[in-house]
């Protein structure tokens, strides 16, 4: 038997959030946390969370499991529990809770939109594809794979304090993805958009983001590159 303690809050019923405990028979299997949630939902239909792909590619089920952000669908119980006997599931920290494990991602998406996450290229498109060498393309590896799960940004103290002004690790990773794309021609515009004390420079390099990213991406490194670009541009 496994004890699972889940953050519950239904704005129509509950004055305040509370933790609810469940006992789950895992039959000794190392299930994924999402499997456990599905078992619980069959018992307690009022429990809500987001999920879609169940294979770690859609970014729906970012949540906080025993203190660490991650995707429930690819986090096995053994990993979430570590040495603990109890599984504690909370919504991603720092964003307003809509209900139970569902947070309002609005602020997170807004920061993403701010960095103009689309290719800008003013030259007329050729009849075939734009050419890009394998080396140029390799610069995009480790960047384009982001699934917008928000695990990183909601683990970042700088984002908690300034969610409206600091772009956050996920958005900055995407900013760099377009800055470094050999096909993009808006480098200057992009850099000047980011050139203020908050958008980039609120990052203090504590790497919480790197530790939680379920896709193994490294926002801190990308932020470092942007800093360098900003600094070398201003001299």
């Amino acid at each position: 038997m496994l004890t699972v303690s889940i953050y519950r809050y239904n704005p129509e019923i509950d004055k305040e959030p509370y933790m609810k405990d469940y006992e789950v028979d895992t039959q000794g299997k190392d299930l994924m946390v999402l499997d456990v949630l599905e078992m619980l939902k069959a018992r307690d239909s009022g429990l809500v969370y987001r999920r879609s792909c169940r294979e770690g590619v859609c970014g729906s089920d970012g949540m906080n499991m025993n203190g660490k952000n991650g995707l429930a669908c690819i986090t096995p119980l053994s990993e979430a529990l570590g040495k603990s006997k109890k599984l504690i599931i909370r919504p991603l920290p720092g964003l307003p809770v809509i209900r139970d494990l569902i947070v309002d991602m609005g602020m997170f998406y807004k920061q993403y939109e701010k960095i103009k996450p689309f290719l800008i290229n003013d030259t007329p498109a050729p009849a075939i594809e734009r050419l890009q060498s394998p080396e140029e393309r390799a610069h995009l590896d480790g960047l384009y794979e982001c699934i917008l799960c928000a695990c990183c940004s909601t683990a970042c103290p700088s984002f908690w304090w300034n969610p409206d002004r600091f772009i956050g690790p996920s958005g900055l990773l995407q900013a760099y993805r377009f800055l470094i794309d050999s096909r993009d021609t808006a480098t200057e515009e992009r850099l000047s958009d980011l050139d203020d004390p908050f958008s980039v420079f609120r990052c203090h390099g504590i790497q919480n983001c790197v530790q939680v990213c379920p896709k193994g991406l490294n926002p801190t490194k990308a932020i470092g590159h942007i800093r360098n670009m900003l600094i070398s541009q201003s001299v």
């Binding site: 290229n121 594809e129 050419l131 377009f178 993009d184």
Partner: peptide
């Protein structure tokens, strides 16, 4: 090709295609 022009990060050949 339209997708590529929009920015889709396709893998590339040595010729850049």
């Amino acid at each position: 090709f339209e997708l590529e022009h929009m920015g889709l990060p396709f893998s590339r050949t040595d010729e850049g295609r």
